[in-house]
Each structure stands twice: as structure tokens, then as C-alpha cells.
Design a protein around this nucleic acid. Structure first.
Lengths: 171, 171
DNA sequence: GTCATATTGACAGTGTGCTGCTAATAGGGC
DNA sequence: GCCCTATTAGCAGCACACTGTCAATATGAC
């Protein structure tokens, strides 16, 4: 039983790479019809589910580095997909909200996405989806442990740190 | 009808994003100790398993665009991790092989990786790994169908052949 | 109130992957 | 031998996400 588990892990890694690529590809294809990308769709979706939020908040929910999201948001502000509003809790860190155009684009994408989501739901039994999501999270944690053990100096001064900014798409 | 399956799909997508990020993070952490990155480790591993191969062959096996792999290979050639050898079947398309230094780095990474792989194997029962890999592939195919249905031109003149990501960013 | 610490905005740089294009080569049909 | 198509190398440009850094602002301990 020495090498078999290793090979199985290899297959899982390979499959995870593929799946990620296909998800992004599908996201870009669907959102691209309306001038968005998968990443921008994700930003709009996070705001749609959780309401106006600061850039660092968005980054924490999405699970990316603050700077990555900030760049996306800056471009989307320039392009009129987003607007900022006053943040009562922080003078400098304004809240990001969808503009009318942003909301319009987002709703168009979601309308186009709906039948695909339904199709996916049919292909994957609910129990399987749940088990899958759970297993993927367990695996992700295991890989994070590996990263932490292997030459990750200390905590990065910025960004999502090891106590995991648990991503939870709002119910 | 319920919106539950949609949410479950959302969770799976979110988990897949997370897993991919952690896999790359762990790969970079492990390979980084020896001056490699996850992507370069993958190139070396593909050569280690399949022998010398042309850049397009590597791209097909890895599942990325030819140009992505070509740039990685070009840089790795410059850095002395790879060498090229004559291709008896194609005058221009030389085969890529590991240099002595590349092989040394690769083996160092694999040695460092082994205990982590064993640990992952213990955490994940073999049957679970297999089922997981299978489910991920099924899901990846489903997402590919979505991308194919949503605004896609026919076959691109270039790119990974049989089962690969195509189409991003439509202007 | 004052100060140390954490958070945030902003900018620069890097790595990976994608698309699009042109020119050179291989291979098969005639 | 000659042409047509597919494959290939090589280059340029874009999207996305990462790290690093600095100054400005909040926050909490005292």
C-alpha cells in the first residue's frame, strides 16, 4: 500500500486543477457575454449576497488577497460597474456597492447562468454536492497545513492568514 | 422547487476555488525550498513520468495552453533546469529533457514532498480519493459543456487538443 | 488623552495562464 | 514533385492573483 495512495492523491490534484480551469472557463464564457469576467462576476455576486462592503471585507469573503480584489474593484469603479458610498465605521475605507449598470450586468449574467446551475443541480445529487464541498474543504485544510509546515516563514503581514477566513457564501 | 441545489453548487465552486489556491500554495511552499515553483515542479514531473517531450506534448499532458508551457520551458532552459535534445520526428520541435541540475532539484522536491503525500494518503481513505477524483472530473466535464454552450466559437486554430480549456475573455 | 498595534489605501513588481498573430515546418493527397 | 492543411515556435499583449512596502487611519490598552 505504499505507492497507491500517492497516485490517488496525484489524481485528485490533477482533477482539482482541471475542475478549477473549467469553472473559470465556464464563468468567463457566461459572464463574457455581458462584458464581465468570472472574477468580476464574483465581486458583484459577493456584493449582491452580502450588501455593500469594503474592499478588505470583500477580499476576506472571496478568499483572495486584499490587493487582488482592490485592483479588480478599482478597475470596475473606473468602468462604472461599481460605486463607493460613505462608510460610517471608517472614514478612509469607503463601502463598495453596485452601480445601476453593475446591477444590470449582474442580473443579466445570473439570468443566463440560472439554467446552467439547474442543469448542474440535476447532474449532481444534493447529498453528493454537500459531501463534495465538505471533502474539498477538508483537503484544502490539509494542503494549507503542508504549506505552513514547509518553509512558510511566519504569518504574512497581510492577506488571508492561517486561521482561515472561512468563506461562506451568504445564505 | 428549492434554491438549495443552487446553493450547494455555489459551495462546491467556492470549495474548488479554495482547494486550488491551497494546492498551488502548498506546491509553491514545498518547491520553493529548492528554487522551484509549483508550475515548474509540474513540468519536471511530467518529464519525469513521461520522458523527454516536445512543448506541445507537455502542454497537452498538463492541460494548459501551449504558449503557457512554452514560456515556462523557455525560462527553465535559460536557468539551466532543462535542456533540449534532437527530435527524430520533427526538426524544429526539439524534445525537452531535464538537465542534471533540473533532475537534482526535482528529486530534492520529491523527497521533501514524500512525507506530505503520505500524510495526505492517511487522511484520505483510498476509496474516498478515487471517488473524489472521479467526481471532480465529472464536474469538470459538466462545466466544460456550459462553456461550450455559452458563446463559444468553433475549434480554435491552436490550443490543447482533446479535453482542454478553451475560450476565455471574449472582447 | 496618549501610544502601540492593526487595518486600510495605494503603488510597484512578479508569476502564471490566456488570446492573437506570423512564419516555418511536417505530412498527406494529387 | 507540388500544394493544402495541421502543427509548431516565437513574439506581443491582457487578466488575475500574489508579495512587498509605505503612509494614513482606527482601535484598544494604559
Amino acid at each position: 500500500m505504499s505507492s497507491k495512495p500517492d497516485l490517488a492523491i496525484n489524481d485528485v490534484i490533477s482533477a482539482a486543477y482541471r475542475l478549477h480551469a473549467e469553472i473559470v472557463g465556464a464563468g468567463d464564457a457566461v459572464a463574457g457575454q455581458f462584458g464581465l469576467s468570472a472574477a468580476r462576476w464574483q465581486v458583484l455576486g459577493t456584493i449582491a449576497r452580502g450588501g455593500a462592503a469594503s474592499v478588505p471585507d470583500l477580499a476576506r469573503v472571496i478568499g483572495n488577497a486584499r490587493q487582488s480584489v482592490q485592483r479588480l474593484v478599482s478597475e470596475m469603479l473606473d468602468e462604472g460597474l461599481l460605486i463607493t458610498i460613505e462608510n460610517p465605521r471608517h472614514r478612509r475605507s469607503r463601502l463598495v456597492e453596485m452601480s445601476a449598470r453593475g446591477r444590470q450586468s449582474y442580473e443579466a449574467v445570473m439570468t443566463s447562468w440560472a439554467p446552467h446551475a439547474a442543469s448542474l443541480g440535476k447532474k449532481l445529487p444534493l447529498a453528493t454536492s454537500r459531501a463534495l464541498a465538505r471533502d474539498l474543504i477538508v483537503l484544502a485544510r490539509a494542503f494549507r497545513e503542508i504549506a505552513d509546515q514547509s518553509g512558510r516563514a511566519a504569518e504574512p503581514s497581510d492577506g488571508p492568514s492561517s486561521s482561515s477566513p472561512q468563506v461562506k457564501h451568504e445564505p
